[in-house]
Design a protein around this nucleic acid. Structure first.
Lengths: 116, 116
DNA sequence: CAGTATCCCTGTGGATACTG
DNA sequence: CAGTATCCACAGGGATACTG
């Protein structure tokens, strides 16, 4: 039955997958997404909702998320120091994938823990 | 329409997702999976099929993939120096997810390149 | 408030040599 | 053949101070 498990991947696929991972990889991307999910929009609010994150890391990661079009950075003209980060519509498409990834991760943990 | 894009993620989800990424993260996991997909089963064959990989990195990554039950390491009793790495049935389930991730990565690249 | 700038430290991966 | 062992380099991230 299992004499030929096929997962066809070519060079371009390897690249594409590494790109996908990169978008939400690293230590802070997911916690930041989580924080914005929970309604946080402002830099300081996000910062304080994530334990141990530094301004530096938050700043860098917000820029990358913005570059990948998952969030937008809006400057409120009325109050110049009021900047809001929000998800884009485009982020939704990624949301579906993220859900799959989360589900697999949970199932996987059970598999690994049970057989260990 | 987009006043509330929701991607619900909680703390456990963040962990689960980071686990998922970890399983195929890093520089070499995918190239190794790719190589085994292409029919390579032996250490040296895999090594030579992946440009610039070192024995050390190959060894470390094969162990991790084995620990995550995506591949098996079989020692051929007849020829003691003949060891074969193969995908597990379990790897198939991951295969589906990997396909989604690859597709998203390719679409994403187009989105980023076009609007840049 | 929303960031930069600087400096520093650790961990991941690379190079090379060695081994059952 | 299929790995280990050892040493090293460098990048990503942490701590802290500064700024428009």
């Amino acid at each position: 039955m299992q004499d030929h498990v096929k997962i066809h991947i070519d060079e371009a696929d390897v690249k594409a997958l590494q790109d996908t991972i990169y978008v939400i990889g690293g230590k802070w991307k997911l916690p930041i997404i989580h924080s914005i999910c929970n309604g946080n929009k402002r830099f300081t609010d996000i910062e304080q909702s994530i334990p141990f994150i530094t301004k530096r890391m938050l700043s860098l990661n917000l820029k990358e998320l913005e570059a990948n079009k998952l969030i937008t950075r809006k400057v409120d003209v009325d109050a110049s120091t009021n900047i809001e980060y929000e998800f884009t519509e485009y982020a939704k498409e990624y949301g579906t994938l993220i859900t799959y990834m989360i589900e697999w991760g949970k199932k996987h943990k059970r598999v690994i823990v049970e057989n260990s």
